[in-house]
Design a protein around this nucleic acid. Structure first.
Lengths: 159, 159
DNA sequence: ACTTCTCTTTTGAATTGTTCTAAACTGTTG
DNA sequence: CAACAGTTTAGAACAATTCAAAAGAGAAGT
């Protein structure tokens, strides 16, 4: 693989390097700022992944999918790094892990309190607005335990 | 707008209940009968596994765990058969698959509508009485889709 | 710019949980 | 009890994820 900088047509490189701005406060936090705010070094791959992830507010990705997406965007990142990064972001509170399928992990850029529709047929995840669903009467957790969070998954299928 | 649960009109609060405890005839059904009733040949291994599984009313097992348990009980069954059997029982409505962890599948002998506490720390699953939790205002599923079921997982951790 | 220190990334192997395959086996029926 | 279809088995194959060792790259100091 050739070096990232220098040996490539300008268009591709530009897309990535233009993200370099420091003055003033951006309306939307820049990827770099987000990474830094999470207490992580803003490395090329973390910033790039953050850029892809937080472009939209409600994204649901698997590690594989993000890895592919990065590749298509011309970002060279190993799959292991994608996994590492997703977990680090999750630990840092930038992402939410959603469990809907034993077999693959989904990560959600929406970290607010909300729930999901899950279409098993094609593995699609759809957000349910946070204030839509209400769960009541959750019983007290077992002794010595506290509720970490309540996940609601509405499994849907073709009518 | 609450086009809840497919064709159900105007229901606002979903009671996730239907605790299905048969009053009189509890363990009346023999393992063999259960297997047969499910339309499966009562082979030695299926009957043995059914015997282990349905001894208690609320059991949560993984394939590995059941396989080990069988071994300890002196039943010689291959892991593949355990997997096959668990899936067949699930398809036949004798078991419920519970998704709480991307990585392993749990099977529950309680087939009534109910929910779970999940202790991530040790992978323990604890039943929440079926009529305890209520979920309200589930929005209408995407076009052409119907709600298959609503899963609620209360993740708990050491206080 | 150069060094050094530490944190990151990478590649590929290793693990884990689950499914597949082909051959051997066993209920059931005639 | 023969014959067939349904089952089981061991092990290979798989998919998703993690691990390990070595190379690479920020950050800070000089």
């Amino acid at each position: 693989m050739s070096g990232v900088f220098g040996a490539r047509p300008a268009a591709k490189v530009l897309k990535l390097s233009v993200v370099r701005k420091k003055p003033g406060k951006e309306a939307a936090e820049s990827p770099g700022a987000k990474v830094r705010a999470a207490g992580l070094r803003p490395t090329r791959q973390r910033v790039a992944l953050a850029g892809l992830l937080f472009r939209e507010h409600d994204r649901h990705v698997t590690a594989e999918a993000l890895h592919e997406e990065a590749a298509k965007a011309g970002v060279r990142v190993s799959l292991a790094t994608v996994y590492n990064t997703l977990h680090q972001f999750t630990r840092a509170g930038l992402l939410n892990e959603v469990v809907v399928d034993s077999g693959r992990a989904y990560f959600d850029t929406n970290i607010g309190d909300h729930q999901h529709f899950y279409v098993e047929e094609n593995g699609e995840l759809i957000d349910i607005p946070g204030d839509a669903i209400a769960v009541s009467n959750v019983p007290a957790p077992p002794k010595g335990m506290t509720v970490d969070r309540v996940d609601v998954v509405v499994r849907v299928k073709r009518a």
